[in-house]
Computed example of a mutant assay.
Amino acid sequence: MTSSLIHPTAIVAPGAQLAADVAVGPYSIIGEHVSIGAGSIVGPHCVIDGHTRIGANNNFYRFCSIGGMPQDKKYAGEPTCLEIGDGNTVREYVTINTGTVQDVGTTRLGDDNWIMAYVHIAHDCQIGSHTVIANSVQLAGHIHIDDWAIVGGLSASHQFVRIGAHTMIGGTSSIRQDIPPYIIGAGDPFRPVGINSEGLSRRGFSAETIGVLKDAYKLLYRRQLSVEQAVEQMAELQQQHPESHQAVQVLVDFLKASTRGIARAQ
């Protein structure tokens, strides 16, 4: 492939599929099973390989390693995948691996995510959209992060952990169990301290709904209830506040699906 936007020192495999306006910087390497959508930029010294499909308007800064094989001793060369959506910013030295056949076989990153320098996203992670993953966050395999979550710098997450939507995790946290939606907290181990009220307000949640979510938080963390008992009482909240039913339902569904247990206040 020849293009005025591809630097002469870059190596683009013949099988790679790049939109006409994709820019590739000096000394970058694009593998034969890679596709990259319109408006995307690959900075200098990047490697993008594996069975990797990248959408439009993504920006990969220098020295990224995208689509490398999973760091899993069980991996035997299967053609697993990486899928990246649109409008993501991926900063320096980020590594994102493909999936494994022990899971769905595909690592996924949604749209409009801000992935800061030195982040590692391991095999089979499923990252939603509009997240912020700060510098040097380390995500082990099979982790799910829902939309609008913020993970502070130097935090590390155990395999199979789920992080709910609209959470805000402080820097240097150790995440060993699931973190329900809307929660704010930090620590080693992670300790919840309340509802991410400011973040929810910025995203258009009404004051009434934020108040109801605070009540749901109290049921979960302040009333000495089991998760099952808290979920039962959340149903009553939903009946009392139908305008907030869906917001509470997101929390209820997360709690019912949790298999690792949720992070608790210490």
Rank of each mutant, 00 (worst) to 15 (best):
I41R: 11
V42C: 02
G43I: 05
G55K: 01
N57I: 05
F60D: 06
F60E: 04
R62N: 12
R62K: 05
C64N: 08
S65C: 11
I66C: 08
I66Y: 02
P70R: 01
D72C: 12
A76M: 13
A76H: 11
E78H: 05
P79N: 11
C81V: 00
E83H: 11
G85V: 00
D86S: 09
D86V: 02
N88K: 05
T89N: 10
V90I: 15
Y93K: 14
V94M: 13
V94D: 03
V94F: 12
I96N: 05
I96V: 14
N97R: 13
T98P: 01
T98F: 00
G99M: 10
G99R: 00
T100G: 03
V104S: 12
V104T: 10
G105Y: 02
G105N: 09
T106H: 03
G110D: 08
D112K: 13
D112G: 03
D112T: 04
I115T: 05
M116I: 12
A117R: 01
A117V: 14
V119M: 11
H120D: 07
A122F: 01
H123P: 04
D124I: 02
D124G: 00
I127N: 06
G128Y: 07
G128I: 08
S129D: 08
H130G: 03
V132Q: 03
V132T: 13
A134Y: 01
N135C: 12
V137M: 11
V137L: 12
V137Y: 07
Q138A: 15
Q138L: 15
L139W: 03
H142D: 10
I143K: 01
I145V: 15
W148F: 15
G153A: 12
S155M: 10
A156N: 07
S157N: 03
Q159L: 10
Q159R: 08
V161A: 01
I163C: 03
